[in-house]
């Protein structure tokens, strides 16, 4: 029983880390065509995440893999139910990854333009669709007792789902703009800061709407009402969101980015805590819902995986932090020639 509870929250944590890390890459990818005015600026934007995006994206693989390993039934039902949405995300990620590598291989503006478009599409699609998907997970999807999904891609595009998409989009845009503010200087830096300020205002509105809508569209608040102490998480979430703006105003960009990272993690956990113990609620009948108890792996597998994760995830975090530290500092035009190729 304890193992299943631990794994439920680890599952949430891994998704949260994925959103926190790759989130700013998505944000930069979306801002890419708008605030990068010339090729040098665009390349600076790409270099701001260049050494990091691939490692960040592995959090997605790990989150997916852990869903498979710890909750195979959830993995099977969730991903087959969200078939079209997930395929769109995967194709987007393929285009994005390839575009980063291909873009500078041919010295031709038309060629760059193609891959720049791919970077934008490849970033905006997962940002929005992960939001849509998680909002739908929060409110439940029409699955029956056999794990059969009674809906389509358009079932997911309901108002609450779309609000979730808007929320993730704003979160990642602010996150990405702040990372750019840290990594750049001059006009590009000013534009990034301006963008962070603007989108933050929209984010605030969307976040408040989302919190209210969750009251009506989901049962997330049941756990909070049963244990009022949990409202602290929402309180912290609000503080992190406000903190982002305060640090931004003080021009403390790294602190602002950190607060934004916390906001993303806490937003995810707002939903995860509300869901517990359900991983995928059914809107057809409450007992069709997949929970940590009825869809987990065997105790032996959960134990083995826990040992693996306890040993390796801290190691991964250690070397990723080391990598972030290695590549800290502003990227200038002079750096562009020194990226190896």
């Amino acid at each position: 029983m304890e193992l299943q509870i631990i794994w439920f929250f680890l599952w949430g944590l891994l998704w949260a880390i994925f959103f926190m890390t790759d989130g700013f890459d998505f944000g930069i990818g979306i801002l890419f065509p708008f605030i990068g005015k010339d090729d040098d600026e665009k390349r600076i934007m790409l270099n701001a995440m260049g050494p990091l995006w691939d490692g960040n994206e592995v959090w997605l693989i790990t989150a997916g893999g852990v869903t498979f390993a710890a909750f195979p039934t959830v993995y099977a039902v969730m991903f087959s139910s969200l078939y079209s949405a997930l395929m769109l995300i995967l194709f987007a990620l393929i285009l994005r990854g390839v575009a980063f590598e291909f873009r500078d291989q041919v010295d031709d503006p038309a060629w760059c333009k193609i891959w720049d478009t791919c970077i934008f599409i490849g970033s905006v699609t997962p940002a929005v669709l992960f939001g849509v998907a998680f909002a739908n997970i929060f409110q439940g999807i029409p699955i029956d007792g056999d794990g059969l999904y009674h809906g389509s891609l358009f079932t997911l595009l309901n108002p609450y789902g779309l609000l979730g998409g808007a929320l993730f989009l704003c979160l990642f845009l602010v996150h990405g703009a702040l990372w750019l503010a840290i990594k750049t200087e001059g006009e590009l830096h000013e534009r990034a800061v301006q963008m962070a300020n603007r989108v933050w205002g929209i984010l605030l509105i969307v976040a408040v709407l989302f919190l209210f809508a969750s009251r009506f569209a989901t049962q997330l608040y049941d756990n909070y009402i049963a244990n009022p102490g949990l409202f602290l998480v929402i309180g912290l979430n609000v503080l992190a969101l406000l903190g982002t703006k305060i640090f931004l105003a003080k021009k403390a960009y790294f602190k602002a980015w950190f607060a934004s990272a916390l906001t993303i993690v806490l937003c995810t956990f707002f939903g995860i805590i509300g869901l517990f113990p359900k991983l995928l609620p059914s809107t057809l009948r409450a007992d069709y819902s997949l929970t940590a108890y009825n869809s987990s792996s065997s105790p032996l597998t959960l134990k083995i995986m826990l040992i693996v994760v306890i040993i390796f995830i801290p190691i991964v975090i250690a070397y990723q932090v080391w990598t972030y530290n290695l590549f800290k500092g502003k990227i200038t035009k002079e750096d562009l020639g020194y990226e190896g190729y």
Binding site: P51, G55, T62, G65, F68, A69, S297, T301, V308, F312
Partner: peptide
């Protein structure tokens, strides 16, 4: 599923993080 998850955790993370260092870390 556990084998795939172990692969990502112990190996693919390392490979993907290091490739960034190799390309940008000269």
């Amino acid at each position: 599923g556990s084998l795939l998850a172990i692969e990502a955790t112990v190996a693919f993370f390392l490979e993907s993080t290091l490739i960034g260092i190799w390309v940008f870390g000269w």
